[in-house]
Amino acid sequence: MITLKKSIETYIRAKDGNRPFLIADAFTADAELTMQVNTSEISFPATVNGAKAISKVLVSEFAERYENVYTFCIGDPPAAGPSFSCDWLVCMSEKGTGLARAGFGRYDWLAAENSGQVRQLRITIEAMTTLPQDTVEPILQWADALPYPWCPRERLGKEVPKITAIDRIRAALA
């Protein structure tokens, strides 16, 4: 049996690295994804059912638009148990425009007790900011220096680029 921690790490690796085949390891076949998007800067369906559909939306279609993706779960990894919640931060660039993107929100995970795979995931997107091309390199260098994928909250302030939008995101996650 795998752990919820391992399932979360596998999901992050699948999404950030455009590896749709890994979703079947992280999610049950009948998993449910719900999304609450509190910004007009990005859109996703409100509900997605099944690991294959989740893989399509969160990995394959996502990878068509974005690259250089770094997703961080803020705080310590989950201990034993079937549920876990954490804040998240994402830094990436748009393939079509070369613009930088940074956002944050919350993950609420529920694992199947018999497998440790995710059976329910609720993603809340609180903010997603589009930034100029000249911010891509400093944002991605900052992201690359952070512990991945589990980032202690206090590390978010280290070597942060002097970009107002990133300061606001970091403050919101403090």
Results as ranks from 00 to 15, higher is better:
Glu61Asp: 15
Ile2Gln: 14
Lys56Ser: 12
Phe62Tyr: 13
Pro45Met: 08
Ser93Asn: 12
Met92Asp: 00
Phe27Ile: 07
Ile74Asn: 06
Ser115Val: 07
Ile125Val: 15
Thr47Met: 11
Glu64Arg: 13
Ile139Arg: 02
Ala174Ser: 15
Ile54Leu: 09
Met92Glu: 10
Ala145Cys: 01
Thr97Leu: 10
Glu126Val: 09
Ala111Leu: 08
Leu33Arg: 03
Thr124Cys: 10
Phe84Asp: 10
Thr34Met: 08
Val48Thr: 11
Tyr66Glu: 11
Lys162Tyr: 09
Ala51Gln: 05
Thr124Phe: 07
Asp108Gly: 09
Ala171Trp: 10
Ser7Glu: 02
Glu126Ser: 12
Ala100Val: 01
Ala165Ser: 10
Asp167Glu: 15
Phe84Ala: 11
Ala24Glu: 12
Ser83Lys: 13
Met35Leu: 13
Leu173Tyr: 06
Ile2Pro: 10
Asp108Leu: 14
Thr47Ala: 11
Tyr66Asp: 08
Glu41Phe: 06
Phe21Asp: 14
Asp167Leu: 10
Arg119Ala: 08
Asp25Ser: 11
Arg170Gln: 14
Lys6Asp: 06
Gln120Thr: 12
Phe104Val: 06
Ala100Tyr: 04
Ser7Leu: 09
Asn114Arg: 13
Val136Ser: 06
Asp76Lys: 13
Cys151Ile: 03
Val37Gln: 03
Gly105Pro: 04
Arg19Phe: 05
Ile139Tyr: 00
Cys86Met: 05
Ile125His: 04
Pro161Tyr: 03
Glu9Gly: 03
Phe44Tyr: 13
Ala51Trp: 01
Pro78Val: 07
Pro152Cys: 09
Ile12Ser: 00
Leu58Gly: 01
Glu113Asp: 15
Arg119His: 12
Leu131Arg: 03
Cys73Glu: 08
Leu140Gly: 02
Thr71Leu: 07
Ser115Trp: 02
Leu110Gly: 07
Pro152Asn: 10
Gly98Asn: 12
Asp25Cys: 05
Met92Val: 03
Cys86Lys: 07
Glu41His: 08
Glu113Leu: 11
Ala26His: 00
Asn49Pro: 00
Ala171Val: 12
Ile125Met: 08
Glu94His: 07
Leu110Thr: 14
Ile169Cys: 02
